[in-house]
């Protein structure tokens, strides 16, 4: 059965697109048929993060408005053949998305894929609500800082009221993905601890992604971190999160890059 997953956060810049790409790739690496859909119309980025920006011909808007067939717009990843991308349009805005059009695209995608991962734009208006409309599962991406946590809380409220499941009186399964987590800084009280965030949001944790240069490097290379460096700490964290999404019980840990003694003593950057 196909699962529709929305990656959302309310706040911008917390790692929705990076996490969509990494989770999508990680799920596809386990053999699942995955499509990642960029709902950030007008500010599309998912194609860049997946390194597919030079292969975009048609996009989500074209399909929604009936100007192109779904098969023409889907871009298959060159590294993992079970991963596909439905890019957003950069030249249009979110008003070009219609409810009926999105309904049709999602139901067509349901026939082809095991996972439909929707990358939501920031905010709580039309774009984000259309991205979450069909969701069975939501991954709420949160940074360990107060404004991100409050915006996540807000978006959880929206998930409970504006999705098709909520309208039918059912519940969207919600998971917290804590990104950019830095154990040392949390210990020092410079950022919120995992327990603090969990206490405020009271939804189950699907993974903790440690703050890492590896993530930024992967985005700039146009390769999800789970492909570019599968043994790195963030890649392992995303892979574990993907296994949890598939229903496996994996103990929650905060992976770290093992450093030698020399690195531990002298490798600390000036921050």
């Amino acid at each position: 059965m196909t699962k529709v997953l929305v990656v959302t956060s309310g706040k911008g810049g917390v790692g929705k697109t990076t996490s969509t790409a990494a989770l999508g790739a990680a799920l596809a690496q386990t053999g699942q048929n995955v499509v990642v859909v960029d709902f950030d119309v007008g500010l599309r980025n998912l194609d860049l993060v997946l390194g597919a920006e030079r292969r975009v011909v048609y996009d989500l808007i074209n399909v929604v408005q009936g100007e192109a067939k779904l098969a023409q717009a889907l871009i298959r990843d060159k590294r993992i053949e079970t991963l596909s991308l439905l890019p957003a349009s950069q030249t249009r805005d979110k008003d070009a998305l219609t409810e009926e059009g999105v309904d049709r695209v999602i139901s067509e995608l349901r026939e082809k894929f095991d996972w439909i991962i929707c990358d939501s734009p920031a905010g709580i208006e039309r774009g984000p609500t259309l991205a979450m409309r069909h969701a069975d599962v939501a991954v709420v991406v949160t940074n360990p800082e107060v404004s991100s946590v409050r915006d996540s809380d807000r978006i959880i409220g929206v998930l409970d009221s504006k999705t098709l499941k909520a309208e039918k009186g059912e519940h969207v399964e919600k998971h917290l993905l804590l990104t950019r987590y830095d154990v040392t800084r949390a210990e020092r009280g410079e950022m919120l601890k995992v327990e603090d965030v969990l206490e405020i949001l009271s939804i189950p944790l699907i993974g903790i992604i440690p703050e890492s240069d590896e993530v930024l490097r992967a985005s700039n290379l146009g390769t999800p971190v789970t492909i570019s460096n599968p043994t790195s700490a963030p890649a392992r964290a995303y892979a574990d999160a993907a296994r949890r999404l598939r229903g496996e019980t994996v103990e929650i840990t905060i992976p770290s890059d093992k450093k030698g003694l020399f690195n531990k003593l002298f490798g600390r950057r000036a921050a």
Partner: peptide, 8 residues
């Protein structure tokens, strides 16, 4: 019976 979320 559920938490009151931000904005509600």
């Amino acid at each position: 019976e559920q938490p009151v979320r931000s904005g509600q």
